[in-house]
Design a protein around this nucleic acid. Sequence first.
DNA 1: CTGAAAGCGCTAACAG
DNA 2: CTGTTAGCGCTTTCAG
Lengths: 356, 356
Amino acid sequence: MAFAKNTDSDSAPPVGAVSSLKTARRTVQMTDIAHMAGVSASTVSRALSGSALIPEATRQRISEIARSLNYRVNVGAASLRKRDVHTIGVAILGDSMQSISDPFLLSILGTVADALDERGMSLMLTRLRESSQGSLTAMLDSGQVAGLIIIGQLTWHAHLNALAKEGFPIAVWGACLPDAVYPVVGGDNVLGGYLATQHLIAQGCRRIAFFGDTSHPEAGMRYQGYLQAMQEVGIVPDPRLVQPFLFGYVRIRETIDQWLDQNLTFDAIFATSDVTAISILGALTERGISVPSQVKLVGYDDIALAAHVHPSLTSVRQPPDQAGRALVDLLFDVLQGKGRRTVTLPATLIARDSSL
Amino acid sequence: MAFAKNTDSDSAPPVGAVSSLKTARRTVQMTDIAHMAGVSASTVSRALSGSALIPEATRQRISEIARSLNYRVNVGAASLRKRDVHTIGVAILGDSMQSISDPFLLSILGTVADALDERGMSLMLTRLRESSQGSLTAMLDSGQVAGLIIIGQLTWHAHLNALAKEGFPIAVWGACLPDAVYPVVGGDNVLGGYLATQHLIAQGCRRIAFFGDTSHPEAGMRYQGYLQAMQEVGIVPDPRLVQPFLFGYVRIRETIDQWLDQNLTFDAIFATSDVTAISILGALTERGISVPSQVKLVGYDDIALAAHVHPSLTSVRQPPDQAGRALVDLLFDVLQGKGRRTVTLPATLIARDSSL
DNA sequence: CTGAAAGCGCTAACAG
DNA sequence: CTGTTAGCGCTTTCAG
C-alpha cells in the first residue's frame, strides 16, 4: 500500500507566463503526402476535401497514403485560409468549475456536446465567472470560436441583450424573458412552478413552502407559477415560508431547523432544483419528519438521481436532450443570418413517492 | 450584416458535411491597429505581446487603440506562425455525453478546466466512445490540441500504452496499473477498497457485499483492497455477494431483490461509486431494510450529494481538485520532455451515518 | 484534370 | 527601437 509520492516541486507558473509549448510531435503535412503521391499539394488538398475535380483513382491513392501516415489536415491552417472556424465556445456558469455541480446544467452541457458533434463542430469549454462579463467575448474576438453558447444566464440579461444587439452570435440557456433580443432556450418555468404547486394542492396541501433563489430569472418565473396556482384556489402563501435565497446546503438545514423551532407549520415544499430538494429531504428526515406522510416535496429538473433517492423525488422534468439541440440550432440560425428565435421546452410533472 | 451565402438548406448534415460557416463578424485585425497608430504591424505585434523593445509610451498608445476596438490577436493565426498551440483536448468517458452523469468524473473535468485556465490554456472537450479508440488522436493529428487529457481509462490500457510509446502527449485519470507507460493520475484504489472494508469490519460486519464493475481497472483494484481487508481478519468473502458488473440502476434493484428473495444474508455493502451506493440506498429502503442498523453501506468518491442523502453516506474520498492539477502538471511535463510521472492521490475514509 | 502562385493574420529574423 | 520580408500549412483562383 505504498504511497507514490508526488515529487511535485513545481510552483504553479504565474498567470500569463505560459511556457512556450512548441507542438511536440512534428506532424505530417500536406506537402509530404504530395511528394509521396507524386502530385502537388493542391491536388492533395482537393482529393482530401472530396473535390469533384479529382478522379476517383487518384483520390484513392492519396487517401491511402494519408491514412497510412495518420495524416489529418491541420484545422488551424485550414481555418485561417478558409476564414471559417469550426469551434463553438460553451460557457458554463460557475465561479470555479468545481462549483458547477448542478447535474442538470451539466447534462445540458452533455447534450450540447452531442449536438455540436453531430454537426462536426468542436467544443471549447470555458467557465463563466459572475464577475467578469467582459471576458465573455474574448473567444469570439480572438477568432477562436464562431459562436457562443451560454449555459445559465444569471443576472446578465442586460449584458446579453447588448451583445446580441451588436451582432455577437450567442445562444443562451435560461429563462425566456420578455424583452430578450438574444436567442434563448429554456423550460416553461411558469408552467413548471404552476404544475408543481397545483399537484401539491391536489394532494391536499395548503401550507406550501417555496425554496429557490428568485433573483435568478428561472427561479423567479417558477415562483410566479407557484403564486398563480395558490391564488387560483384562494390560498394566500405565508411569506415566512418563502425562502428566496440559497447559499448552499448549510443554509437549507438552518432554514428547516428554524421553521421547525418556530413551530411554523408546513405540509409541503416546492424546491426549484432537485439538488436542493434532495438536501431538504435529508434535513427533514434528520429531524424526524417523514416524507411524504408529514411533508410532501417536489423538486425541479428531474435529474437522474431523483428517481433513486428514497423516497423517490417528484420533480418537474425539463428535457435536457432537446435543450442541447435547440441551443445549437438557434446558434446556427444566428450564424447563418436567419432570424433569432426562442425555444420554450415543455415542463412536465413526474410524480413520485415524495409527494404521494 | 448581409452575406449569409449559405444556400445550405440544412437537413441535419451528414457527418463531415459541415455547412460552411464563414466567421460572421469581420473582426478587427493587426494591420488596422497598425494604420491607426501609424506604425507597422510588427510594432503592434511586439507591443501587444509585451516585447521589451517597445517603449512604454508607444505600447500604451497601441494598447489603447486595441482596447477601444475590442481587438484581440487571432489565436489561430498566431498559433500557426508560432507553431505553438494553446489548447488541450479533454476526452471524457461516455458513449453519449448525456450518459457521463458520474458527478465525480465531472468534478475532475471541472478541476482540469481550472488548472488549464490558470496556465492560460484553452480546453477542447470531446467524448470518448468505448468503440472508437481510433479517433482519440484525431485532435492531436490535426493540430487542434497540444495534448490530451483522458478522464476514464476504461479498457483502453493497451491502446494508451501504445500511444504513449509513440510519443503522443497524453495524461490519464484512472487506475495506476503497474505496466503503464503513460502518465496516470489516480486514487489509491487498493487502499481505498481496503479502508472501506476494514471500516465495515470494525463496525462488526462479516458478510460484506461488493458492488462494482471489476473489468474497470479502478474497481478491480478496489476489489483487491476489499479482498485484502477480508483476508486479514480471516473472513472468506461469499462469491454470491460479489456483483462484478453493473448495467445501470435497474440492475441494482434486481440484484438486491434477488439477494433478499434468496434469503442471502449480508450486513454490509461496499459500492465502488457513490452514485451506485445512493441507488442501493434507495433499493434497500424500499425493501424495508434499514441503513445502517440492518445493513451498513459505504460508497466511493465522496461526491457532494453523499453528505446530503439520508442517512448520509460513508464514502472514500478522492480529492478531485488535486486530480485536475496533477493531470495538467503531468501533461505539461510530457510536453516539455520531462520524464513521465505517475501521481497517486490519497484515499481517505469519510465515515457518515450509513455505516455507523 | 492539375500545378503555380497568392495569401489567410500573424510573428520573427534581419537589416537598418 | 522599427520596418521589411518571409512564411507557418493550407485552399483557391487562375492558367494551363
